[in-house]
Design a binder for these strands. Structure first.
Length: 92
DNA sequence: GAGCTGACATGTT
DNA sequence: CAACATGCCAGCT
């Protein structure tokens, strides 16, 4: 473990965001701001979206992260697909 | 090294 | 009530 990941940016913030989003249970959703707050900054909701956008990992249910207004928001695979996924999980 | 971009939020007009 | 403008953070060019 004395080797740093020089390829991945994996900063403290992105790591935290990733962990939080991964922990979101099925059928449950969180807002970008909420995730940002848990990540450490209640004003980094913009960065959260950027991180999730660059993160194509299927292990991270980024589709469970929605806007504070209740709108689904955007998605790297298509906002429509995101809506379908949320509906499929039980979130209406 | 500096500047621009963006999956947002909040406030004001 | 709705639309416009500004602010903020981290990542990418």
């Amino acid at each position: 473990m004395g080797n740093i990941d020089r390829h991945s940016k994996t900063t403290n913030f992105s790591q935290k965001v990733m962990a939080i989003v991964t922990r979101i249970p099925e059928g449950q959703i969180m807002t970008y701001k909420q995730v940002a707050i848990l990540a450490g900054s209640h004003k980094a909701y913009r960065a959260v979206g950027n991180i999730l956008k660059k993160n194509y990992d299927r292990k991270i249910p980024c589709h469970r992260v929605v806007r504070s207004d209740g709108n689904i928001g955007q998605y790297n695979r298509g906002a429509i697909k995101k809506k379908e996924l949320l509906k499929s999980e039980g979130y209406l």
